[in-house]
Simulated assay, not measured.
Amino acid sequence: MPATDALSRTFAALADPTRRAMLAQLAAGPASVTDLAAPHAMSRPAISQHLKVLRDAGLVTQSAQAQWRTNALQPEPLDDASAWVAEQRAIWSTRFDRLDETLARLQAQDPMPDAVQEDDR
């Protein structure tokens, strides 16, 4: 089932190493399909399919001048993905801090018997 929300489309597009490499190329500036295809050992239709996924995710725009098509990076979806990751990191950091506090409190209340501690070493 294809991703329907913007964040899912962004992560789906980022899941492929070829597409990530294309985005890295485009971070240096706009590029033609030929320029984007150069470092990859794949057919032109395969490159075009990767670009379609990136365009559908809103990560790349394509403009045409005469017969030339130029692709450019659109970083806004990456900002949204980065914000989501930061939010998840904060949530899990808080949860792990609470777990550490709970474990420390439990260990202080009920230390393990000496025999068990020596077996674990």
Rank of each mutant, 00 (worst) to 15 (best):
L7C: 06
T10L: 05
V33M: 12
L78N: 08
L51E: 08
D120A: 15
L78F: 02
Q67L: 11
L7N: 02
S63F: 00
P45D: 00
G58I: 02
G29F: 04
L14D: 00
D97H: 09
S43Y: 01
M112A: 15
S82E: 05
Q62F: 05
T10A: 11
V85T: 12
T34C: 11
P111F: 02
G58A: 06
L36E: 08
A86K: 15
R20S: 10
E87Q: 14
D97K: 11
E101N: 11
Q107R: 13
M42C: 00
D56G: 15
A115K: 01
A15M: 03
L54N: 10
S32P: 13
A41G: 08
R44D: 14
P75D: 00
A28I: 00
Q25I: 03
S8F: 03
T10D: 02
L36M: 04
V53Y: 01
D97W: 01
L99W: 03
P2G: 01
M22C: 14
A64M: 10
V116P: 05
D114P: 06
W84P: 07
A46P: 02
S93W: 01
T94P: 03
Q49P: 01
R9T: 05
A72G: 09
A64T: 15
A13F: 00
K52S: 12
D120S: 15
E76N: 02
V33N: 12
R44Y: 09
Q62S: 15
Q74Y: 10
S48N: 13
Q25R: 13
E76Y: 04
T61H: 10
E87C: 13
K52H: 10
A21R: 12
S8M: 09
R98Q: 14
D5F: 09
D114L: 04
L7Y: 07
S8V: 01
R55K: 13
I91K: 15
Q65S: 15
E118W: 00
A108F: 04
V116R: 12
M112Y: 08
Q49V: 08
Q62I: 05
E76V: 08
S63N: 11
P111I: 07
A108E: 07
M112Q: 13
A12N: 05
K52Q: 11
D56R: 12
R44N: 11
F96N: 14
W68F: 12
R9I: 00
S93D: 09
S63Y: 05
A46V: 08
L54Q: 11
Q107W: 03
P17L: 01
I91D: 14
L7D: 07
P45L: 03
L99Y: 01
A81R: 06
A12T: 04
R98F: 08
V53Q: 07
A21Q: 08
E76F: 03
D110C: 04
S43M: 00
P45Q: 00
A57V: 03
S63G: 11
L103H: 01
R121Y: 05
E101Q: 13
T102L: 13
M22L: 14
R20L: 11
Q74V: 14
D100I: 03
D79W: 09
A3S: 12
